[in-house]
């Protein structure tokens, strides 16, 4: 097996009395789309900034592309970042922004011009090279930021909440576009986000962080279906707690007649929410309040106040602990 592209080795970073990153060890493989997911203040942004070189760890080492970069200044690291608010240079044109990293590398003028055109075509901004950043829409700015970070051919692209400034529809399109781009380029991407959908859509693997520590690392399906605990289970989706067991709302079945399944609960419907593709039911049971998602065209329907049964297959039960 090849060595990982990035390796955090027992990295700790403190800001005053607060520990932002607490003894994190993490590997990111070459060519992977890796997502750092967690609530705000969990240390995911600090972890990325440590890799970019904007922060220096208090303990531990960071290796990038076979080199120990722990004490290397940001301008010498082969990692480029796409900033949350894009950080486009307002005094430069789109083309000059994209050329910025290439000029810093001292590439010849003609090569820069060719590469800039190539990058603008890649992000579908052909012909906009002469514009200033304030003449662009939010989505266009984002693509300029992407082109600028990709132009000098980094070993890893760092994306800091890249979709935060986009509206919902554009965000979904961009997620798939980023994934396509990453696959086409074969480049390693590291994304920081607090949006679980975003992390699951783009990420080959995710690391869920909490209070400066990594709680669990795995593929989206592993984390969603076999979460390591209540925090991961709850952060990646809704979960019904029955003692030490967790069951996702879409794995529960609602019926009027008592089901044959061993795992069943009796209850009363308290809420009904129709979402088109599914209907969400709130059910008060002997084990507490549950949520059930019934797909449209499958399963029974019920009204508020009706007495119903809930059941779930054995493999839907996730052992979460206390």
């Amino acid at each position: 097996m090849t060595a990982p592209l990035v390796r955090f080795e027992a990295v700790t970073k403190r800001f005053g009395a607060e520990t932002a990153v607490d003894d994190v060890t993490l590997e990111i493989a070459e060519g992977e789309f890796f997502a750092l997911l967690g609530p705000s203040g969990c240390g995911k942004t600090t972890l990325m900034r440590l890799l970019a070189g904007f922060e220096t760890p208090d303990a531990g080492r960071i290796r990038l592309a076979g080199e120990d970069v722990t004490d290397m200044p940001p301008h010498r690291r082969p990692a480029h970042m796409m900033f949350q608010a894009y950080a486009l240079f307002p005094h430069l044109t789109v083309a000059q922004n994209v050329a910025f990293g290439l000029k810093a590398q001292g590439r010849p003028k003609r090569e820069i011009a060719v590469r800039v055109e190539e990058m603008l075509a890649l992000v579908r901004l052909e012909g906009l090279g002469g514009r200033k950043p304030d003449e662009l829409s939010g989505g266009q700015k984002q693509r300029v930021a992407l082109a600028r970070a990709l132009a000098p051919a980094p070993r890893i692209l760092l994306l800091d909440e890249p979709m935060a400034a986009l509206d919902r529809k554009l965000r979904e399109e961009t997620q798939f576009e980023l994934k396509r781009l990453q696959a086409a380029l074969g480049l390693t991407f590291l994304i920081v986000t607090h949006d679980r959908d975003e992390a699951m859509v783009v990420g080959d693997r995710l690391a869920v962080m909490r209070d400066g520590r990594i709680v669990q690392v795995g593929t989206p399906a592993e984390l969603y279906e076999r979460p390591a605990g209540r925090f991961v289970a709850g952060f990646l989706g809704e979960v019904n707690l029955i003692g030490e067991i967790g069951v996702r709302p879409e794995r529960m079945r609602l019926s009027r007649a008592e089901p044959a399944a061993a795992n069943r609960l009796a209850g009363t419907v308290t809420e009904v929410g129709y979402l088109g593709d599914r209907t969400i039911y709130g059910v008060e049971t002997t084990a507490g309040a549950m949520r059930v998602a019934q797909p449209t065209g499958g399963g029974e329907r019920a009204q508020v106040g009706e007495a119903v049964w809930l059941s779930y297959p054995a493999d839907a039960a996730m052992r979460l602990g206390r």
Partner: peptide, 19 residues
């Protein structure tokens, strides 16, 4: 001035003085 602009310049390969 947005401090992330300076970080972006350094991230793209400029020394602090060049940035």
């Amino acid at each position: 001035q947005d401090e992330s602009l300076i970080e972006a310049a350094q991230d793209l390969g400029l020394t602090p003085r060049q940035a």
